[in-house]
């Protein structure tokens, strides 16, 4: 696996992380192209099924990006998302996929710099972990 380029799926809340991504763009901050952004109306909208399917369809890493604590536009969608992520990490472990491949992160709409850093860190972490065990077996 010499030229492994991880596929990262980022579920981004419309009210924070997605806007932060825009901000990063307008500030000309560089972040890896590995991160595929999926806009969601709220991080709480992300379902276990979405996370499972992302991995099944070939993601090497997934993260859910929601608002800062207490700042959810829908009151507590970010907390719900965090619980779902914690639950799904357990499920990934059962399946035999490293739970670190799934993360919950929180940021505000103005944190373009944080968005870029998270995207970079996640990509680098997954790069070190290597391809998801599912892809590795298929290769």
């Amino acid at each position: 696996m010499e030229h492994f380029e991880p596929v990262i799926v980022a579920f981004c809340c419309h009210y924070c992380a997605y806007t932060a991504a825009d901000m990063a763009g307008s500030q000309r901050l560089v972040y890896p192209a590995n991160v595929k952004i999926i806009r969601v109306p709220c991080s709480g909208k992300v379902d276990s099924l979405h996370i499972a399917k992302a991995f099944e369809k070939g993601a090497d890493g997934v993260y859910v990006a929601g608002c800062l604590d207490g700042d959810c536009h829908f009151k507590n969608g970010n907390d719900k998302a965090a619980r779902k992520v914690a639950h799904m990490r357990g499920y990934l472990e059962e399946i035999g996929i490293e739970p670190e491949r799934l993360e919950m992160v929180k940021m505000s709409a103005g944190m373009g710099e944080r968005f870029a850093r998270v995207a970079t860190e996640m990509t680098e972490k997954i790069r070190k972990l290597g391809p998801s065990p599912i892809k590795a077996a298929a290769a």
Partner: peptide
């Protein structure tokens, strides 16, 4: 229905992982 989807995905991934 949703849990069926999540489990199907999990089973599929376990299988794929073992080739």
């Amino acid at each position: 229905r949703k849990e069926v989807g999540v489990l199907a995905s999990g089973i599929q991934m376990s299988m794929l992982k073992n080739g």
